[in-house]
């Protein structure tokens, strides 16, 4: 396999250089590109993302709603379990969830606030109706949730269950996607990424039948954020 792959690469790179009427880039040209990649610079960031934090919080919730997401706003972390339990009741969903094995999330006072809630930690199974996760950030510019995969954050929880609930703190709200890249680089190191980084803006939808919008095409039908104001 590797021989053919090698041949393919050399052939294609040769064609590219031939069309551009040049040979390989010079050492300086390559160094300039290496430096551009090693020191990524921001391009234009829309003004609406560059407002103070309180305004970013409001913008996030506004755009989340515009994208058919819903939210419950609570004052403190300790209120989150009850809010989840009440949300499940309001949607006629069972008090049974698959939850990310995330230390902070698991450490919330579930027994106290939601004594009837059954929780299983780990990736989603096909029969799970509700997946509960945290998020790396909430992006104000578009009301978007940013999640990354890892041992404490299985990807399947975001996509397999019909209902996805995200527990998010106000301090996690950032202005733009670029702030998310900064946070991720700080965590993973320059040029490194987890297997999956997903940006979620509202629940799953399709417009494939006569361009009418139906929610819940393949991913979650409902996206609900439990938003904690206390940082």
């Amino acid at each position: 396999m590797s021989n053919k792959t090698q041949g393919g690469r050399a052939t294609i790179l040769g064609w590219i250089r031939g069309s551009l009427d040049r040979g390989e880039l010079s050492a300086e040209q390559r160094a300039a590109i290496d430096s551009r990649l090693a020191n990524p610079r921001r391009n234009l960031i829309p003004a609406r993302a560059q407002v103070d934090h309180a305004a970013q919080v409001e913008l996030f919730l506004e755009y989340l709603g515009a994208a058919n997401g819903t939210f419950t706003r609570v004052a403190a972390e300790a209120d989150a379990p009850k809010a989840l339990s009440e949300y499940l009741s309001s949607q006629n969903l069972p008090q049974r969830v698959a939850m990310a094995p995330d230390a902070w999330l698991q450490g919330l006072p579930w027994e106290k606030g939601a004594p009837l809630l059954e929780r299983r930690a780990g990736p989603a199974r096909p029969e799970d109706q509700v997946g509960v996760t945290g998020a790396l950030a909430g992006i104000a510019e578009t009301g978007t949730l940013m999640l990354v995969s890892g041992p404490d954050s299985p990807s399947t929880l975001t996509m397999l269950p019909e209902t996805h609930v995200v527990v998010l703190r106000a301090s996690q709200i950032i202005g733009a996607m670029e702030d998310g890249w900064d946070a991720l680089r700080k965590r993973e190191g320059q040029g490194k990424m987890p297997r999956t980084a997903i940006f979620i803006t509202g629940p799953s939808r399709t417009g494939d039948i006569e361009m009418h919008m139906y929610l819940g095409a393949h991913g979650p039908r409902r996206l609900h954020v439990i938003f904690i104001d206390e940082s």
């Binding site: 990424m193 999956t196 803006t201």
Partner: peptide
Amino acid sequence: EMSSYTTLSTGPRR
């Protein structure tokens, strides 16, 4: 503003 899902995939599962 954004599609529902924008997903970056990098390598296999760790």
